[in-house]
Design a protein around this nucleic acid. Structure first.
Length: 257
DNA sequence: ATGGTTGACGATCAA
């Protein structure tokens, strides 16, 4: 079961890239973030033609998450509990092929100390609380997405220069680890404990050509999923294609039971 | 060099 997560930075702007990569890589399940469109304007037919069932949670202009699966999709949930007034489309949860799958778009946080940064920290705490509930079911669970945090120094291009900045701040890393500490495994990190494998390079400042990136997209696995973990990788080459997103797909493969 | 580039949308906001 090949599971990929990808922040596409607008699904409509990324159609040629998305269709080409899906045809080539053939993931069974895809977790998308930053689709940036309402469900009514989502290009569903092109993906259904590739054999996917779709679950969508979009909004106008910003955010937006989705899950594609080659198997039927059950038990759709689009609300992350904890802030009833939160209208940002950043969470979608389904069950497919016996696995509970979640696509998250954790808030970017703008700059440390801002209101958006505080919202980001609260969002992490809401995700941890909900993940703690789900862990009680003791089922195969994959929480993937754009976490907007690089967990360790090797996950950024310059840990000294970036120390304490947004996406590499101890308050974010502590909250990310508190989710891992529920018993979840970072699929890529556990199989590839090397340095400087990035999933995102800023569009600004020539970051890609200088290889100044960060590993901020992750797939977190419950023990029942981690026991089936066979492989994991990052599709670095996707960043070098025409009209690329600033993020590339991160994937893992689970053995069939 | 607190800039730079991309996307939605149609002036700025977000990342």
């Amino acid at each position: 079961m090949k599971i990929a997560t990808w922040n596409v930075n607008s699904i409509r702007a990324r159609m040629p890239n998305a269709l080409a990569w899906l045809r080539d890589f053939k993931p069974d399940v895809v977790l998308l973030q930053e689709t940036k469109t309402v469900n009514e304007k989502f290009p569903t037919l092109e993906f259904e033609d590739l054999g996917y069932n779709l679950a969508l949670h979009g909004q106008k202009s910003y955010n937006g998450v989705a899950i594609f699966s080659k198997w039927p999709i059950e038990d759709l949930i689009t609300v992350l509990p904890g802030e009833s007034e939160d209208d940002q489309a950043r969470y979608i949860e389904v069950v497919t092929n016996g696995v509970r799958l979640i696509s998250v778009y954790v808030p970017n946080g703008s700059s440390v100390g801002s209101d958006k940064f505080e919202y980001k920290l609260r969002w992490f705490e809401r995700l941890r609380a909900h993940a703690a509930e789900l862990m009680q079911y003791e089922e195969a669970l994959v929480i993937g997405g754009d976490y907007n945090v690089a967990p360790q120094p090797g996950d950024v291009y310059d840990p000294i220069e970036l120390a304490g900045t947004v996406c590499f701040h101890p308050e974010e890393q502590i909250r990310f680890r508190s989710i891992l500490n529920l018993g979840l495994t970072d699929a890529y990190q556990i199989l590839n404990p090397g340095l400087h494998a990035y999933s995102w390079w800023d569009h600004r400042g020539g970051s890609w050509h200088k290889d100044q990136g960060m590993r901020i997209d992750h797939l977190l696995l419950s023990p029942q999923a981690a026991d089936r973990l066979a492989a994991s990788g990052i599709e670095r080459a996707v960043r070098g294609t025409e009209k690329a997103s600033d993020h590339v797909p991160v994937w893992c493969e689970l053995a069939e039971v």
